[in-house]
């Protein structure tokens, strides 16, 4: 192939732009409505159980992805669980060095499948370990908006 190339890479142009959408508003959905209402109003987590498969899901789901049944059985779970795995962040999203490292963990809860990804707090990075018991630190009730950030972080139980 003998393309007649421009030659100098400096002559090759780039065009700069971004995605102009002002933002997205995601509805929480059938099960999500219930999950966030429970978090906001009662400070608890909500799970659901497929009675056919006898499998539970946290966060709650409206249907069972395994057998496709509709799920109508919802139940509350205390926001206290175990660190299943974790990672320690030392740089931010743009690669900048963080002043304080951030610990992010996947937390599972007693007796239900699934779990939550969230931050860990009130602990030193040296003390975090897989299997450790943690519990949620929530915003005060009147400041909760029904978002996952209503939980500030999880701390050692």
């Amino acid at each position: 192939m003998s393309w007649d190339k421009v030659g100098l890479p400096t002559k090759l142009r780039h065009w700069y732009g971004d995605m102009e959408v002002e933002g997205y508003l995601y509805t929480a959905g059938i099960a999500g409505e219930k999950f966030f209402k429970t978090l906001k109003e009662r400070g608890k987590l909500l799970a659901s159980r497929c009675m056919k498969c006898d499998v539970s899901y946290l966060p709650a789901r409206a249907y069972c992805p395994s057998c496709f049944s509709e799920i109508t059985e919802y139940f509350e779970v205390e926001p206290e669980g175990n660190v299943e795995t974790y990672t320690i962040l030392r740089v931010g999203v743009d690669g900048e060095k963080l002043e304080e490292p951030v610990i992010v963990a996947f937390i599972t809860f007693d007796g239900v499948n699934g779990g939550l990804i969230h931050r860990l707090g009130e602990m030193d990075e040296k003390d975090v370990e897989i299997g450790m018991r943690v519990k949620a630190v929530l915003k005060p009730t009147d400041e909760r908006r029904g978002e996952i950030t209503d939980i500030l972080y999880f701390k050692p139980a």
């Binding site: 995601y26 509805t27 929480a28 959905g29 059938i30 249907y63 496709f68």
Partner: peptide
Amino acid sequence: RRMLETPKELAWEAAKMALDWAGLELD
């Protein structure tokens, strides 16, 4: 114009109805 369901939940509702129509299960 606006539905409460998440995209997954919408997909499930339609898919479940199609299986019911056919008399089949997800299995």
